[in-house]
Design a protein around this nucleic acid. Structure first.
Lengths: 400, 400
DNA sequence: CAGGTTTTGTCGGCCGTCAAGCAAAAGTCA
DNA sequence: TGACTTTTGCTTGACGGCCGACAAAACCTG
């Protein structure tokens, strides 16, 4: 405020980047609206808007709605100014996508890719695919505002280095941002894949309820936690690791691959359900097999999935009491098994959780589906790239 | 930057309140140090410092350490400029304290006070005590920078209204800030008492590790969660409600007062332990009785407390996997039972949690003890009152 | 006590923001 | 078509904050 502010009055916005925050939602606004919203003089708004227009981040969006006189010009975030590269690494496959600045996916490709091949091979591979996608879309490397990547293991988010990931041999403490930074411009942000799924679900469907818990049920079980609109990562980035939590009612004879007994993953994840069904004579293979069996109406499969939902619900009831979320989203391959998993979860959660915490609690299936990770990665980058300081820097670099 | 900043250079700090943040830790600094830290010109620093000195928030702290020339003056937060009223409401007693702006308690009083008497009586009572304390310390009401109050139930923190508190009949949706605001100046902030204990423990002992879980074990069991240095409150303010979580290994015949079976509170809280001991012929009364029995070396008591620790540990193992804290602090009356409770907790947590999450995990006993709530309430208020905007407003009000 | 060093206070200049005013542009309405 | 309305672009003067520089003050060293 050029400290013009005699101090004491509404703190007001200051920099160009701050003003830009009012336009991040993508809704067009007129100069007049911006002036009242920011309590800045119209002349100042004009200066800022001009700078943003020159940078390309802002674009006029037609004019409209005259109230009797000259219709005001409306401006909005120019989603096409730059693009974001979003990468979702799984255990055996990788998805690479390019999105615009609103988070809309412009192009996407999924390939088989073994994470155990190590960081060099995998990262070069996805970088290549990203470069191809960019070319297909008629974009160049300098158009990239930033890169977001999700990996199947804990990550020290501040440095972007995976931390002792169990299923990612060779990735411990690898400087992922450095390696991807060689190929693309902008910041490279790394996070756990389930965290990003949670973020993706949050930004696409649940922005209004700021406390969300996403549970991914597939070969393993993990959770991503959004609290107060922010990802909860924990001290070492391993928050949300629900797979090896002990299930209250679990049979004592189920030994998990982690060596403990009664782990959630050992009773409710894909392999456990498949094993149960095979014991009953049903020939199912993998999580997809379970989903197919459920879709085919196999009673044993319905039962098993529902029972897995109950076990999951038993753990989630604890999570509800601990975190008091307003939404639980069930994702992962097994969430495709219709309402049966959900039914089991609801059954136990609503029974075991405190009425207070369940009052406004919704338990739903994922709406982003398999694209949650990509959407979350994109959202993470956009959040960083459109932050006030980043915008200031960008505007400066483009006008200098 | 008075937008002086041609934009693009280090965003730098701006307002007086922002500069003040560099001094919040209480360590004295010279103008020169502030200049380099904030990348503001020395002349600007002088202006800001003068304003802060005039407001009383800042005070010169002697001069020192000449490096061959004129010794620089050092300035630090003036802890005595104003005071904070901290209130900790329990089920049957209330503690009122006055602290300075560093959080140090200047005066404190605990009285018997039944929360069930309702908000009017209780709040007037503690307000009276607060007024007396202020008088004893030679302070007046306008000296109060703000009021922090902890209550034994969930609170909608944004509005300061208790939300369906089970043990606080008559308090639902009461406008606590309004009522206390009549008596004192400054903001009135309300939160759950266990949350404040967690915050108190955090600010006094664990600022460096930004992820803390405090568990209070007494008549009931509850937890306060600090993540990334911030309190996790949840959608309805009921996060951390561990009391009625199901314990994995719990006997199926223990019915809790909430109607469910196997609740943590029904097997590991004070009343449950006391009941166990009475069944063994030991005549113990309340949590204090248990602590006394342990201190007396009663083997049955040691056993029972340790077993309670194991049950608690079983639930905390889940919390560790979910939240990945770096410290678990055990507080509440029962934490006074020496190392026995802690030993039980450690035993199970280290066995059941993932090695990753326990790598840097410390499990310790409270160091703030019964004053945690007061310290947390004070810290909460100080955090609000010394925030940049609040400082700006205060400085403006004092120079106008 | 004298010279050197470092901090401090002050002043002028520069620049951004604001508020106000005016003319032009672009519509609406009668 | 003409009068009215509303927004926009531009300019001006005033205000106030920030910076840089200079001189005085305060202290150390020999």
């Amino acid at each position: 405020m050029t400290m013009t502010a005699p101090v004491g009055l509404p703190p007001a916005l200051v920099g160009t980047g701050d003003l830009f925050q009012l336009l991040r939602d993508g809704r067009p606004r007129t100069r007049g609206e911006l002036s009242t919203l920011s309590s800045l003089a119209r002349s100042t708004i004009t200066t800022r808007v001009d700078a943003l227009l020159a940078s390309g981040l802002l674009a006029p969006v037609g004019e409209a709605a005259s109230t009797g006189g000259r219709p005001p010009t409306r401006f909005a975030l120019n989603r096409h100014d730059r693009v974001v590269l979003a990468i979702d690494l799984g255990a055996s496959h990788a998805t690479v996508a390019v999105s615009d600045l609103s988070g809309e996916v412009l192009g996407e490709r999924t390939v088989a890719c073994d994470i155990a091949d190590g960081p060099e091979i995998v990262l070069d591979r996805v970088a290549d695919i990203g470069t191809e996608l960019l070319a297909d879309l008629g974009r160049t490397v300098p158009d990239v505002a930033g890169v977001g990547i999700g990996v199947p293991g804990p990550v020290e988010h501040a440095t972007g280095r995976p931390a002792n990931p169990p299923i990612m041999p060779g990735w411990h403490d690898v400087d992922v941002p450095e390696r991807l930074g060689r190929r693309f411009s902008g910041p490279v942000l790394v996070d756990n894949d389930v965290n990003l799924m949670a973020l993706g679900e949050y930004v696409t469907s649940w922005q209004s309820s700021r406390h969300l818990l996403l549970v991914k049920v597939a070969t393993g079980i993990g959770a991503g936690i959004v609290t107060d609109g922010r990802l909860l990562r924990g001290a070492l980035g391993s928050a949300g690791d629900l797979g090896h939590v002990q299930v209250a009612g679990a049979p004592a004879d189920v030994v998990c691959r982690c060596g403990n007994i009664g782990c959630l993953e050992a009773v409710a994840a894909g392999p456990a359900i498949a094993a149960t069904l095979r014991a009953k004579g049903l020939d199912v293979e993998g999580s997809q097999g379970i989903v197919d069996a459920v879709a085919a109406g196999e009673v044993a499969a319905l039962q098993a999935v529902r029972e897995a939902g109950r076990d999951l619900g038993s753990v989630l009831a604890t999570c509800v009491n601990l975190l008091n979320p307003s939404v639980i989203v069930i994702g992962g391959k097994l969430s495709e098994a219709g309402e049966y998993l959900l039914a089991g979860v609801r059954e136990v959660v609503y029974q075991r959780s405190l009425p207070l915490a369940t009052n406004d609690l919704r338990i739903v299936s994922t709406s982003a589906g398999s694209r949650g990770g990509i959407l979350g990665a994109s959202a993470m980058v956009i959040d960083a790239v459109l932050a006030p300081r980043a915008v200031d820097a960008y505007v400066a670099s483009r006008t200098a």
